[in-house]
């Protein structure tokens, strides 16, 4: 028993250390700015910015090739964070400041075509062919891909109703204009 477990454990440990060492030895110096920007983006790889995933978007942002407002799911909050990190003065007043939204299936319109959950980058839509689909609110990033592909307009992005945990005072009117 021990003679079977030990060699395999040893092999696994040896390979693990080997990989760890190789990781240090072969580390590619990555752009720190790029890494930080990547952390600010939603990370759902929805591709609405036109780049291949959030990593591609972060790369373009770091090079200054993309507008800071490129991320539709991130909305104004992400654009603001990006502007602060990159030290750019931006007037974000005309960017819609949406409350958090979540996709919702209108049950009387859904035909169960399964198109929406095939495009969902976060696997937030659940269902089967010719069955009503359902959205997991916790996983939904409101990227809107399902809304765009739905043939019967059965998916809506609805604002998340404030709960006791998320409710806060409205900001004073004077501070809302930037």
């Amino acid at each position: 028993m021990l003679m079977t477990v030990m060699p395999l454990t040893a092999l696994g440990l040896a390979l693990g250390f080997l990989l760890g060492g190789a990781e240090r030895l072969l580390r590619v110096p990555r752009d720190e700015l790029e890494e930080e920007l990547l952390k600010m983006l939603p990370g759902s790889q929805c591709g609405q910015c036109g780049y291949i995933g959030c990593a591609g978007a972060a790369q373009a942002l770091a090079k200054g090739e993309a507008p800071l407002t490129l991320c539709p799911p991130g909305g104004r909050a992400v654009a603001q964070a990006l502007a602060e990190r990159l030290g750019v003065e931006m007037n974000l007043a005309d960017m819609p400041d949406d409350v958090p939204r979540v996709a919702q299936v209108l049950e009387h319109l859904c035909i169960g075509c399964t198109r929406c959950f095939k495009v969902c980058p976060t696997d937030a839509v659940m269902g089967a062919a010719k069955q009503l689909h359902q959205v997991f609110g916790d996983a939904c990033t409101a990227c809107g891909k399902c809304q765009a592909i739905c043939p019967t307009e059965a998916i809506q992005l609805t604002p998340v109703a404030p709960s006791l945990l998320t409710w806060g005072w409205e900001r004073p009117l004077a501070t809302r204009e930037v």
Binding site: L18, L19, A22, L26, R27, V28
Partner: peptide, 12 residues
């Protein structure tokens, strides 16, 4: 392990 290692090596 080899695949991981190859990926690192090629990237570098």
């Amino acid at each position: 392990t080899l695949v991981q290692f190859t990926e690192m090596l090629v990237r570098k």
